[in-house]
Amino acid sequence: MNLAWKDMKKNKVRFFIVGSIIFLVSFLTFIISGLANGLSQDNAALIKDLPKGYFYMNADADKTYNLSKIDNETQQHILQNEEGAVAFSIQMGFLNDQANKQHSVAFVTATDSEFFAQVKQGEVLLDSSLQDKGIHIGDSLTNNQLEEQLVVKGFVEQKKFSHAPVAYIHQEDYTHMYRVQEMQLVFIPNTDVKEFTGLQAFSQKEFLQTIPSYNAEQLSLNMIIWFLVVISGLLFAIFFYMMNVQKIGLYGILKAIGVKTIKLFKMIWTQMLILSSIALALSIGLSQMFSLLAPNSMPFHLTIPAMLQLAIVFLVIGFVGATISGLQIKKIEPLQAIQRGEA
């Protein structure tokens, strides 16, 4: 007999309230997780879109890619010996459009590689967000450190670094602008970490942490997410605890007439599963809708795997919460319940 379902049907309001709270908490968690991920994408899509691999910068650059200079000899050696290796540099800067309006961009230049867009000297390839700001293909842009103009050759989708649109430029132009011959970084895809004298290796995650603001942003958002997850677990624990306290007499009698304790646990688990499945399904649906309706300028990025992962965490936490509160059932002595009052 399905005790769990009968109980829920008879006490609709009670379960509805808890279900709604679980729904709101999980929905909020999904939204914040979407924002965290969106911001992270906005902050570092350039890096995050690269395949799995390792980044290398000068060991004495103090984990600041800006201070890193990889000498030509090392760079040549790595590019020749490591398949797919690429050297690249990033500098935050400005481009002025034809109306002399300034746009903040992240200049990126790289050696020949499939992972970075290539342009000729005097040309620039921009992140498509600048297109929305009124820049068109063929426009000539200026930079005060560069005598020649840069002609917009085209746009790329979703390439951001440190919240700024990426501007791919040729290495010669880069050298003129920043007066450095050397590249800052080397990236080697699809390999284990390697040892090169004078260089320090970073996994993608480690490298992202070196971007100013990335860490601070993600840390606080992730903290909110995990707080919400833990809160929902506690909600389950407290809710079932209170329900169980009310039912101590009932459980005692049921145990006296021979109901197995595991049957009572199954009842709680089933209720928890029904409540969270409905709540999670609703919030998954709604957050997908939100991601469609959210304005383009809002960094919101929620993938199905990320959501499923969170949903599973919710279920596990709910299960733990319900089980902890169920432990008191184990302790109930049928005898005490019998001598008590009306049930």
């Binding site: 005790l3 009932l250 006296a256 007439i257 109901v259 019998i338 009052g341």
Partner: peptide, 22 residues
Amino acid sequence: IRQIRASQFGFIFQFAHLVPFL
């Protein structure tokens, strides 16, 4: 003993102690 209680014994107490949602 639980099995015996479940299948061979019956119980009535001062209060009926019925399951409220059944």
